[in-house]
């Protein structure tokens, strides 16, 4: 077997067992996944290594000073979480707000909207 450039370790969250999965990479290609007990674990590890995605939940300020809880409507790339929060830190929202309403579009250039997770009258 050819030499491995990089080995990444991923804790699987698919089931409570929490397999420590090793992903071997060579020349940007995944060549080996080990330590998982099932197929779902391999899939999870693959996506964690290539493009890990997370839903961001945070708050934005309403004009009256209160906080409105929000989330990204879909997962966004993990490495953009801070950029997204930074972008949202300046956002001021005017009520009333309906749950699910878009309060900010295309956060951090991801094409993903930020939506309210509660209503506000």
């Amino acid at each position: 077997m050819s030499a491995v450039n990089e080995e990444k370790s991923v804790t699987c969250i698919v089931c409570p067992r929490g397999c420590r999965i090793k992903v071997s990479i060579k020349g940007g290609e995944i060549i080996r996944i080990s330590g998982n007990l099932c197929k779902r674990g391999a899939d999870y590890a693959r996506s964690e290594v290539t493009q890990p995605m997370r839903v961001l939940t945070t708050t934005v300020r309403l004009e009256d000073g209160h906080l409105l809880p929000v989330k990204t409507a879909r997962p966004i790339p993990k490495e953009l979480l801070f950029e997204a929060v930074r972008e949202l830190s300046g956002v001021r929202v005017k009520g009333p707000i309906e749950i699910g309403q878009v309060v900010y579009s295309n956060v951090a250039g991801t094409g993903v909207d930020v939506v309210a997770t509660r209503s506000w009258n």
């Binding site: 839903v55 939940t57 809880p69 989330k71 749950i99 997770t117 509660r118 209503s119």
Partner: peptide, 10 residues
Amino acid sequence: EELTGPEYAE
């Protein structure tokens, strides 16, 4: 489906 706490409550 996966909800946040405020969504579940609402």
